[in-house]
Amino acid sequence: MTDTVIHTNGLTRKFGDFIAVNAISFEVKKGEIFGFLGANGAGKTTAMKILCGLLSPSSGEAKVAGYDVYTQNESIKKHIGYMSQKFSLYENLKVRENIKFYGGIYGLRGADLNQKTEQLINRLGLENEADKLVGSLPLGWKQKIAFSVAILHKPKIVFLDEPTGGVDPVTRRQFWDLIYEAANEGITVFVTTHYMDEAEYCDRVSIMVDGSIAALDTPEKLKEQFKTNSMEGVFLQLARNAKRSE
């Protein structure tokens, strides 16, 4: 059990009569890269909000980093990192200011925060850019900084919500190098994406359809199961039968 970072059992969330998340059960292990896929409206965002401690479930169980989503959601927030393509860094703050701001939000303080900030700047080789506005940097760098900031406080798990949307093919792949590195250091990575080739980079993948988890396994086994040679093939077979679209 100590190696389980996310545990859900029958996790459900209703909005009125609408069952956004319908009794999902799964576990994610320490250091795993877990792909969380589904069509628009399948319930991914709702499920992710619950796991990040931002929304209460209607029923079922869920524990994240050992904390209960019903009663310990403030503790969850301290032990996770979060990054998305849509919202990451403040363009009008300098690189160093962004790092300190987010570090502070994640609970780092004083000398510890200063030290971790300078370490990160050195590690990313951004000594000359540290006092530049984030808005002036290329997208690839912004993403690198955003991801590094999300794991600055050494969370047990980092949630990445479509981290690579609209990014060029090289930057997109360099971003995955960062993900592998983090996973190798023992950080669990929970990632959503609309790029099906990225699904193949995950250790395991779940695919949500109409609020339920329709499939969950390694990419290899899913491809075998659905008799296709790509994750796109798996996804199309499952999502084509979806009844609801957002």
Partner: peptide, 13 residues
């Protein structure tokens, strides 16, 4: 201009 950005593979198709 980018009509399919952020859209899932089925809807894109």
């Amino acid at each position: 201009d980018e009509p399919t950005t952020g859209v899932d593979p089925v809807s894109r198709k």
